[in-house]
């Protein structure tokens, strides 16, 4: 039940941000919504009610590292699209490896 609720709330919040991003112009501004805290809002809202503020603060600290990994991911996607001329699907899927390595590496190095 808990995970079904998560799925529903997450899907709704992410879709809302995605639709706003679709409608906004110029596209460079709309791109900001690609890094919107949509999954975070859904997850943290539920975490507050289930686990409390301490738990949420710890998640926030790790999320900072995930955001740095997202910056690296976006840079690599951009390069693969423009310089290597990969398709968007291929570039965004391949670069997920960069996000994983950066996020897990930073966590291990800085938090342990």
């Amino acid at each position: 039940m808990d995970y079904a609720l998560r799925f529903l709330i997450g899907g709704l919040v992410v879709s809302l941000f995605a639709v706003i991003g679709d409608m906004l112009r110029p596209k460079s501004f709309a791109g900001l919504f690609g890094a919107a805290p949509s999954v975070a809002l859904a997850t943290l809202g539920l975490a507050f009610s289930k686990h409390g503020g301490n738990y949420v603060a710890i998640e926030g600290r790790s999320m900072i590292l995930g955001s740095i990994a997202l910056a690296a991911y976006s840079f690599v996607v951009c390069q693969l699209l423009i310089r290597a001329e990969w398709s968007a699907l291929k570039a965004t899927l391949a670069a997920l490896a960069i996000w994983l390595v950066a996020a897990i590496g930073l966590k291990q190095f800085l938090i342990g």
Binding site: K27, A30, L32, A36, P37, E59, R61, L70, L81
Partner: peptide, 26 residues
């Protein structure tokens, strides 16, 4: 591809906003 790259660049810059969101939560 240029449009998708522009979106990715926007997300890259926007990730600093996401980091500040997380910093505030922490």
């Amino acid at each position: 591809k240029a449009a998708a790259a522009l979106d990715a660049a926007g997300a890259g810059w926007g990730s600093l906003g996401l980091a500040c969101f997380a910093l505030f939560i922490w």
